[in-house]
Design a protein around this nucleic acid. Structure first.
Length: 379
DNA sequence: CACATTTGACCCCG
DNA sequence: CGGGGTCAAATGTG
């Protein structure tokens, strides 16, 4: 069952990502189509499983969620169970988005033959990037969501160096998606996904012109959220970011999120926690009532309530931003209190006319952003 | 002052 | 052994 659950979670995640990246892909129907296909496919597999062996799926391993039978999976008509899943509070909107984009897909006729791509191709065809989920379920057997112990007393010089529990990211599954960087305005803006990330590293990668940024959930401490992501822009297409996510967000667990989680045993990710986690894009470290993010709200809010906060640049302009500094969501210290606001913005703009390409301009009024000096001559 | 980013060093894994 | 991922001190910003 774990596999199935994971699949579900994955599907949800995809949906969420799609939703989140909507602002960026708004003007790229083909991308949307692809993305939708993925989601549909994902849930299609789930349906298959649930329909056949509800508890099976044990041994194999779900990692290749790219199933061969991706023909009848049409979120629009055939799938029942799938929709059931999608009907979950948080996915209602995703569904509408899906339906909407499906329409696009049909129109643009850019249907993806196989979404399944084991590897992300370095080249981007035209403007249409390949937003592909490329999962790498490394967990061949047991999947310990534990990720790694980030707080190990990793003494820098002295002390034993064996204390380190740092494992290669072979535990947590990871999936890669490509998101186009907004062509207008801040093209440096990294893909925003509704979560707040904190950059903890950057490194030049062999074979890549651009450095790779390492981010982790801002709430890692509070919630022991092991979610991480790497952002790297393709050297073949600087306008495209390749984002690799790893781990799940265990933060923003419930509306009554305690200011500080008492015992932080990383929830193995129960089904419930799973979709809750994959639904709400975090709320805050405490003071901010996450009510806004509760699935319930999705239901009441405008159906299309896409709170995709593509923001990021946030005028905070933190003293950084030299590279493709994907900025950490909200603001430095202001917490993510901004989310709701942005959410409204997005909400409004998407409700008004999702076809406006300049919608981004709405979000990034001062998109000019004379980029930053790549010549950061400090010191 | 608290928190985020920068950046070089450290360490693990392939 | 080297690349990639992470840590943590230093630094910057609101």
């Amino acid at each position: 069952m774990d596999d199935t659950i994971n699949l579900i979670r994955r599907g949800c995640r995809l949906a969420r990502e799609l939703e989140i990246n909507l602002p960026n892909m708004a003007n790229q129907p083909s991308l949307l189509a692809i993305s939708c296909e993925e989601i549909i496919q994902a849930f299609g597999v789930i349906r298959e499983r649930l329909g056949r062996n509800p508890l099976d799926a044990g041994s194999g391993g779900y990692r290749e969620m790219q199933e061969p039978r991706h023909s009848e999976v049409q979120a629009g008509s055939g799938s029942n169970n799938i929709e059931e899943w999608l009907r979950l509070p948080g996915y209602a909107q995703a569904v509408s988005i899906l339906q909407q984009s499906q329409h696009w897909a049909g129109t643009s006729g850019s249907r993806m033959g196989n979404i399944e791509r084991r590897e992300v191709r370095p080249e981007v065809e035209g403007a249409a990037a390949t937003v592909v989920g490329h999962f790498v379920g490394t967990g061949g057997g047991g999947e310990e969501m534990q990720a790694m112990d980030v707080s190990l007393g990793r003494r820098r010089s002295a002390t034993s160096s064996s204390e380190r529990t740092r494992r290669r990211n072979s535990d947590a599954e990871k999936w890669t998606i490509r998101v186009p960087a907004p062509r207008m305005g801040n093209t440096e803006l990294p893909p925003e996904d509704g979560y707040t990330w904190r950059k903890y590293g950057q490194k030049e990668i062999l074979g890549s012109k651009f450095p790779r940024g390492y981010y982790r959930c801002t709430h890692q401490k509070l919630y022991h959220c092991s979610a991480k992501k790497q952002v790297q822009r393709l050297d073949s297409d600087p306008f495209t970011f390749e984002v690799t996510y790893r781990g799940d967000h265990t933060c923003h667990m419930s509306s009554t999120t305690p200011s500080i989680l008492p015992p932080p045993p990383p929830p193995p990710a129960s089904l419930e926690a799973a979709h809750v986690a994959t639904t709400q894009p975090i709320s805050a470290s405490a003071p901010v009532p996450p009510s806004r993010w509760l699935p319930l709200d999705f239901g009441m809010g405008s159906a299309g309530g896409s709170r995709n906060m593509a923001i990021g640049g946030s005028g905070s302009g933190s003293g950084s931003g030299s590279e493709a500094g994907p900025s950490t969501g909200g603001s430095r210290r202001g917490k993510e209190v901004e989310y709701p606001l942005v959410a409204d913005l997005a909400d409004v703009m998407f409700n008004s006319g999702s076809s406006s390409t300049n919608s981004m301009d709405f979000i990034f009024p001062a998109s000019k952003e004379d980029k930053k000096d790549e010549d950061n001559g400090k010191d």
